[in-house]
């Protein structure tokens, strides 16, 4: 039957790799060779991209607004730091996964609070959990090093073979591989029936439950997965910078994260990656103008983005790429246009 093949091709289309996507990753890889002197900042971008990917999973796909996603980043960061510092797990990859899992457990436990109640309650709970963890880390400064952070972290070579170097080359490739693998996993997840049910819940939870979607269970699942991602991002941060201090939990980190995501656009996975690049460039720009007042500029960007309208901004952003693609390939849309956020 013709209709069936239509259905299957349309259904699969969303999950199919587009040329622009392949180009995107080739470009990311080629950066390693184009800018060999800038590994550190590029690693920074990759970490941020992974962290934002995590937020996109809950915000962009499931519609959970979080003011405290740094909680999981921080737990991952401290877990990795403590494991390395005390030689509990020396091999970075295993430590990375374990740190992610620890954050994941925390995510699972707190998800029950987060899924209850309305948006406002979620804001308070997510913010509250991050603040609570920050206060805990401060309280147990004998373990966490307090405001000074963990001192003297030394990383062992990855898989016992690739030592971290001072130019950050190893760190960069390590981060890039981790990001890519987790991106593939996320891509798989969002294009599955499970991912579809998340988008349905975000659009209309009432209808979702009325066709048999166990809404709470799905939200718990994705929140837990997102916590894992954030934990990995935090662990990468510690492993590649040998730092972990109280500010991993800071509210500003969670807020920046939202900014990164809305710059890039929600609900199509690349938003976090593109947003991270733009954000870091903005940061460099503003910091050369007025280093101390970075906060002001982030605020301004947020305000302007919202006033202009996120949809409109992304249409502008895609205007040029669309023009180019249309010249070359005679068709439209480089990346999927981000979904509008259901009010």
């Amino acid at each position: 039957m013709n209709a069936v093949s239509d259905v299957s091709s349309h259904a699969i289309a969303r999950a199919r790799w587009r040329p622009a996507e392949i180009a995107f990753w080739m470009l990311a890889l080629s950066c390693a060779f184009l800018f060999p002197s800038r590994y550190l900042i590029m690693t920074d971008i990759l970490r941020l991209a992974l962290f934002t990917l995590s937020l996109d999973l809950i915000l962009g796909y499931a519609g959970i607004v979080s003011l405290g996603h740094a909680a999981f980043f921080g737990v991952g960061a401290y877990s990795a730091g403590l494991m390395a510092l005390h030689g509990i797990i020396n091999e970075p990859v295993i430590a990375l996964v374990v740190a992610g899992l620890i954050a994941m457990v925390l995510g699972f436990l707190t998800s029950f609070l987060v899924i209850r109640g309305v948006d406002l309650t979620r804001l308070m709970v997510t913010l509250g959990i991050a603040l609570l963890l920050e206060a805990l880390a401060e309280r147990f400064s004998n373990i966490t090093g307090g405001t000074d952070g963990l001192q003297g972290i030394e990383m062992q070579p990855i898989l016992g073979m690739f030592a971290f170097d001072m130019f950050g080359k190893t760190g960069f490739f390590y981060s890039l591989i981790v990001l890519f693998l987790l991106f593939l996993l996320a891509r798989r997840i969002v294009n599955s029936p499970f991912g579809l049910s998340l988008r349905a819940i975000k659009n209309n939870p009432l209808r979702a439950s009325a066709i048999g979607v166990p809404v709470n269970r799905r939200l718990i699942a994705i929140y837990t997965v997102a916590a894992f991602y954030a934990g990995i991002a935090g662990a990468l941060f510690t492993q590649t910078t040998a730092l972990a201090s109280l500010d991993v939990f800071a509210f500003e980190r969670s807020a920046d994260l939202m900014l990164v995501l809305v710059i890039g656009g929600t609900g199509y996975l690349y938003g976090g990656l593109i947003g991270a690049v733009v954000f870091k460039m903005l940061q460099e720009l503003f910091q050369t103008i007025t280093p101390q007042y970075w906060l002001f500029w982030i605020g301004l960007v947020l305000v302007v983005i919202v006033l202009v309208g996120r949809d409109r901004m992304h249409r502008w952003a895609l205007w040029l790429p669309n023009l180019i693609i249309r010249q070359i390939a005679g068709r439209k849309a480089v990346v999927a246009v981000p979904e509008s956020d259901a009010p």
Partner: peptide, 21 residues
């Protein structure tokens, strides 16, 4: 419709299989 069908078949939580396969 795809989601409703998947849920009915108990595959709605399936996170590995892609839609349409």
């Amino acid at each position: 419709i795809g989601l409703a069908v998947s849920e009915r078949l108990g595959r709605g939580g399936d996170w590995w299989r892609r839609m349409g396969t």
